[in-house]
């Protein structure tokens, strides 16, 4: 029980919030808007998976929002050329993986701190995108939206895909040696080296994977509207980091699991609509998001302080 204290307390907070909504704003539970809301969060959930891996390996990536924009534009451009969805998806994932590999080379290869490297790449990709795209939206061919399914069908498919990804990665993190290596490297890179694990290779792989997941998330996002917004990734990095930290992933590396992050993202994603339904102004979203991150790390800090005494 004690091991999952964080996950359980976040789940309790989510439950309390949902209960409050049920009491005071029951129309929150109307199926159609609820499904839309879930579908809209699906890409963020996929990005949060990658961020969880990155943070478990004791790194951080704040360039995911920019990566997301680049992947979306690449995917949108190819889709506008009427290429099939599979090609679009592969291209987007590939683009993400390359961008991730770039971070990975600088961080794992040169040993530069991930915060500054990804800060730099965040701006570089973002401005490159603005330069190339000048903020223009890309119109998608009609078959693209909802992947040719009905809206409800498409939304269901996206939510199912995101949850499936969480399940798959949760399984892999738990049951594949590669997943355990991520924990090992984040827990103690030197001990990992002594155990024959390659910390650099693992870190590089994590960043490539992060990029690939961003590519997937970008496609999951563009199929939800008739147009591609090149700025759709703004603030995504904070949301993903917040979900991971709130979900119990330790910023000191080596600890955390995806189900906690899943609940963490649900909690964060519910706060904003809850504010609206409970007639609190929505402008507080960012402040509350920051506060939630701080609360989560302060809770960890207090616990480790007490542990030391």
């Amino acid at each position: 029980m004690k091991r999952y204290f964080r996950e359980l307390s976040v789940a309790a907070a989510l439950f309390a919030l949902l209960a409050g909504l049920a009491l005071f704003a029951p129309n929150f539970y109307e199926p159609a808007p609820l499904l839309s809301r879930f579908a809209a969060q699906a890409p963020a959930l996929v990005v949060a998976i990658g961020m969880t891996l990155v943070i478990i390996s004791r790194q951080i990536d704040i360039s995911v929002g920019s990566q997301f924009g680049v992947c979306a534009v690449v995917a949108g451009t190819l889709a506008a050329m009427k290429l099939p969805l599979v090609v679009v998806l592969l291209a987007s994932v590939g683009t993400g993986a390359i961008l991730g590999a770039f971070n990975g080379v600088l961080i794992a290869g040169l040993g530069l701190p991930s915060i500054v490297v990804t800060l730099a790449t965040m701006v570089t990709w973002q401005e490159a995108l603005r330069l190339g795209q000048q903020g223009r939206f890309i119109n998608l061919p009609p078959g693209m939206q909802w992947m040719g399914l009905s809206q409800v069908g498409g939304q269901r498919a996206l939510v199912a895909l995101a949850v499936l990804m969480v399940a798959a990665f949760a399984w892999a993190l738990k049951n594949l040696a590669a997943g355990r290596h991520v924990y090992a490297v984040g827990s103690d890179a030197e001990a990992a080296r002594l155990a024959g694990i390659h910390p650099k290779g693992t870190t590089f792989g994590v960043f490539v994977l992060m990029g690939g997941l961003v590519g997937l998330a970008a496609v999951m996002n563009i199929v939800q509207s008739p147009q591609v917004d090149p700025n759709a990734g703004g603030g995504l990095e904070l949301k993903a980091i917040a979900a991971a930290v709130v979900g119990g992933v330790a910023v000191s590396g080596g600890r955390g699991n995806l189900w906690g992050v899943f609940v963490g993202l649900l909690l964060l994603a519910t706060i904003n609509p809850a504010l609206t339904y409970l007639h609190v102004e929505a402008y507080w979203e960012k402040a509350i998001q920051g506060l939630v991150i701080l609360l989560a790390v302060v809770a960890d800090g207090l616990r480790s302080r007490r542990g030391k005494r």
């Binding site: 920051g290 800090g301 480790s304 302080r305």
Partner: peptide, 15 residues
């Protein structure tokens, strides 16, 4: 609280 400056100021960045 001996928290890493990165994550603290990322939180206040948003706050």
């Amino acid at each position: 609280l001996r928290l890493p400056p990165l994550i603290v100021t990322l939180g206040t960045y948003s706050l």
